[in-house]
Design a protein around this nucleic acid. Structure first.
Length: 775
RNA sequence: GCCCGGAUGGCGAAAUGGCAGACGCACAGGACUUAAAAUCCUGGGUCCCGGAAGGGACGUGCGGGUUCGAGUCCCGCUCCGGGCACCA
């Protein structure tokens, strides 16, 4: 069991209660631990870890150090030590060059700033806080970034290696957002400059009738003609004031201004105007597009609004478009009106047209095949107190260094005031005695980085620490990791990972990245951290809404356990429905489960609590053996497939059958206790002891079934005539098809349906049915 | 708008293409009890014929299709839940 408590949720709790996060974390761990023990979960407490403990986050910092000291080799497709980064001969400042290539770097970036929280947020976190009613705005700040984008292709491709819910894989794929297309360079007329655009539809190049730059694009101001410059600058200022949300809300009405500049369309050789508009995003692709209004809906709307030309260059394969268009034709089709002296796409289907134009662009040196991802680098710093300190010293001379292994952990100071400063600076910046250092290793003065890591850092690798939780020399011993995760890089990882779907593009993405970095250095044996993933459903309040204090529909496990017992709570939650389903709590339902447990108890005991004399050493009847072995099989298989609800239904069938027997075979009753134990361990242990055993049943092997004992001696066969059930026959189970056919055709109930008809075909499914087709 | 899921009795839900509704909740009737609780037994998809035993037709959101046979597979919709969304 591990506790992961750094980050905003704990700090928010501390701010409302006034309890220091360290204390609050300890108290909450104590409560959870008590509840988990109360419920009888078999956690290995010798492996308990806490991501906020210095002995744990020492290794989180150590891994940050690994990220810092790495660059990504795109040739070899892996991270490598920064010392191995090839330095081009013309580079003067080697350190600056390295800093540009590290897998974590500081950058002035437009970040998601939340004033009420007093911190920045990762892109992945924004929606969550917005939903809670917080305002998140764009603001440029100098922040630590982690170059997760270097791993985009592997994060995408390796999804094929894992057994995850398809929807979760899909969410990650969408978040990574791979697009394949081309980069194309358009020379700006009358200048030395050129605009490079990214497009997924290079086949529509002949239809590019204007260019659009994002307002933030560096060329915008430079290329603007003097008489347009004021408009351009004021437009840029206007769109920068908009938050992302506003920019999206305004999606319907596209705005933009002309820069006065023109570029050459390299395919048509025509001059096309260059506009700037905020429907083009600065941080995707190259921040510039070629607009093809006939074949892109956004461009179509913009062109229509501003009277720009619309040139059809693709026709549907089924006919011709009616011009003027009322909307863009965005599907694949057949290229048309797309030829020059050098290249012609006319008549080619879209895929082939793409290939031909890319070949031409590459031949001419004005474009190339390109792949782009939506995924952006991970904003890694937070202006908060309750997180792992980033182990970096910034020196007064402008240089910095990351702490060495022997200097870790860099511990969080114990401050009394942990609320955000409100200045955009971390709380740690208000603790000079912690922050300011005279570095013993360099003799230089400086200060520690005052930002802390995001709440996701510690959870990126905790599952590795479980393998070897007390190791002081490394985060985990390689042998322990191989033992637990497996040795095949393409399989393995955590065998079964159960967690909420809300982590699909947060924790589950960050941890995969983190794991892959460790894999690149051989620290972990598998490419992926989590082999099989399962999302458990949420238990809602009885009113069908999410449990929340303000709605007053919270069910407290303490109360339920007090009233019905831990076994009832466990059984009920499993019996409610499929594990993955979201389902409401039901107070009637738990009554039913309590009744079931009471029935079990009475099946074994006299009212005074002693072992029932109905339990005797007699052999099982054939029927009893069938039920027993069916129950064993069903329970074993259903546990394997996490179908706990149907396993419990089978346990109920067993109890219904055996509790009505005056004499209950001891052997069956013992095996049933073992089957019950994973679901209701407390009553099972009690019954085990009543049956005369010493020690826990947990050390006893789980029952296995005998397939032969499950088979019925006789089976009921459905006899259909023209697919309608007309009779049921009880026949020996070993009857083969011929015997079944004979019995079915000679059956009296069937005869009357066959009278005067011709049998055309007889379909026989042994053990199931006979279907006689007549006309 | 795009991408994923899902839809079965009064309710939670079961069903390798083979008797739809296992198991449970709630309900109704009965037994036990002075009574109640608890417990035990019995019952039930809908409609039609029948006094009854019984028999028949229909039935898994809607419309088509494949198949001897469809809750299950295919095509097209509707509604609900989740995700993404000016990503060029």
């Amino acid at each position: 069991m591990g506790w992961d408590a750094f980050g905003l949720p704990t700090e928010r709790y501390s701010m409302t209660t006034g309890i220091h996060p360290r204390i609050a974390t300890a108290e909450n761990i104590a409560t959870f631990k008590r509840q988990l023990k109360m419920l009888g979960f078999s956690y290995d407490w010798s492996r308990e870890i806490n991501t906020t403990a210095p002995c744990y986050y020492r290794w989180t910092q150590w891994m940050f150090r690994l990220i810092y000291n790495s660059w990504y080799d795109h040739q070899q497709q892996r991270a490598r030590p920064i010392e191995e980064l090839p330095i081009p001969p013309d580079v003067a400042d080697v350190e600056a060059y390295r800093d540009q290539h590290r897998l974590t770097y500081m950058a002035l970036v437009p970040v998601n700033w939340c004033e009420e929280l007093g911190t920045v947020l990762a892109n992945e976190e924004v929606d969550e806080w917005r939903e809670k009613g917080y305002t998140v705005e764009r603001r440029p700040m100098r922040q630590w970034m982690v170059r997760i984008t270097a791993y985009a292709e592997r994060l995408l491709a390796d999804l094929d290696l894992v057994d995850w819910p398809p929807s979760t894989k899909e969410m990650q794929r969408n978040w990574i957002g791979k697009s394949e297309g081309a980069e194309i360079t358009f020379p700006v007329i009358g200048t030395e400059e050129s605009v490079t655009v990214f497009t997924t539809r290079p086949d529509t190049l002949f239809g590019a009738t204007y260019l659009v730059l994002a307002p933030e694009h560096p060329l915008v101001e430079q290329i603007s003609e003097p008489e347009y410059r004021d408009d351009v600058i004021s437009y840029r200022a206007q769109s920068q004031r908009k938050t992302d949300l506003e920019r999206t809300e305004l999606a319907r009405d596209k705005t933009g201004v002309f820069t006065g500049a023109y570029a050459f369309n390299p395919a048509t050789g025509r001059e096309i105007p260059i506009w700037t508009a905020d429907y083009v995003l600065p941080h995707y692709g190259t921040g510039a597009i070629m607009a093809v209004p006939a074949h892109d809906q956004r461009d179509f709307e913009f062109a229509t609004a501003y009277g720009l030309p619309i040139a059809v260059v693709v026709q549907p394969s089924t006919g011709e478009l009616n011009e003027p268009l009322t909307e863009a034709f965005t599907d694949d089709g057949i290229s048309y009106n797309s030829h020059s002296d050098e290249v012609s796409l006319d008549g080619l289907p879209t895929q082939q047209a793409k290939e031909r134009i890319i070949a031409w662009l590459e031949h001419r040196g004005i474009g190339r095949r390109a792949v782009r991802y939506k995924l952006r680098d991970w904003l890694f710093s937070r202006q908060r107190y309750w997180g792992e300190p980033i182990p970096i010293i910034h020196f007064d001379d402008g240089t910095r260094r990351i702490l060495d292994d022997d200097e870790l952990p860099l511990e969080l100071p114990d401050v009394h005031e942990f609320k955000p400063t409100g200045t955009g600076e971390s709380v740690l910046a208000t603790v000079p005695e912690w922050m300011n250092v005279l570095d013993p290793k360099t003799g230089k003065r400086g200060h520690y980085e005052t930002n802390t890591m995001p709440q996701w850092a510690g959870s990126c690798w905790y599952y590795l620490r479980f393998c070897d939780p007390h190791n002081d020399d490394r985060f985990a011993d390689p042998n322990a990791l191989r033992y637990w995760l497996g040795t095949d890089p393409n399989r393995g990882g955590v065998d079964l990972y159960i967690g909420g779907a809300e982590h699909a593009v947060l924790h589950l993405l960050y941890a995969r990245f983190w794991h892959k970095l460790l894999y690149d250095y051989g620290y972990v044996p598998t490419k992926e951290p989590f082999a099989k993933l399962f999302h458990q459903g949420l238990i809602l309040g009885e009113d069908g809404r999410k449990m929340s204090k303000s709605l007053g529909n919270v069910v407290n496990p303490d109360d339920i356990v007090h009233q019905y017992g831990a076994d009832a709570l466990r059984l009920f939650e499993m019996f409610l429905g499929p594990l993955e389903a979201t389902k409401p709590w039901s107070s009637k339902g738990i009554e039913g489960i309590k009744r079931f447990l009471d029935r079990i108890w009475r099946m074994y005991t006299h009212p005074d609590g002693t072992l029932s004399s109905a339990i005797v050493d007699i052999p099982l009847t054939r029927e009893q053996q069938r039920i027993l072995h069916r129950t064993i099989k069903k329970v074993r298989e259903d546990i394997e497939s996490l179908s706990f609800n149907t396993a419990i239904a089978q346990l109920m069938i067993f109890v219904n059958e055996f509790s009505r027997q005056e004499q209950r075979p001891r052997q069956a009753m013992e095996l049933f206790v073992l089957l019950l134990a994973p679901f209701a361990p407390h009553i099972a242990e009690e019954l085990w002891s009543l049956l005369g055993h010493t020690g826990s049943l947990a050390t006893h092997p789980f029952p296995d079934w005998n397939e032969q004992l499950i088979a019925d001696d006789t089976v009921e066969i459905v006899v259909q005539v023209n697919s309608k059930v007309r009779a049921k026959l009880t026949v020996p189970a070993e009857f083969d098809s011929e015997e079944l056919r004979a019995r079915a055709l000679s059956c009296q109930d069937i005869q009357r349906y066959l009278d005067g008809k011709t049998v055309t075909k007889v379909i026989i499914v042994p053990g199931k049915l006979v279907n006689i087709l007549v006309h």
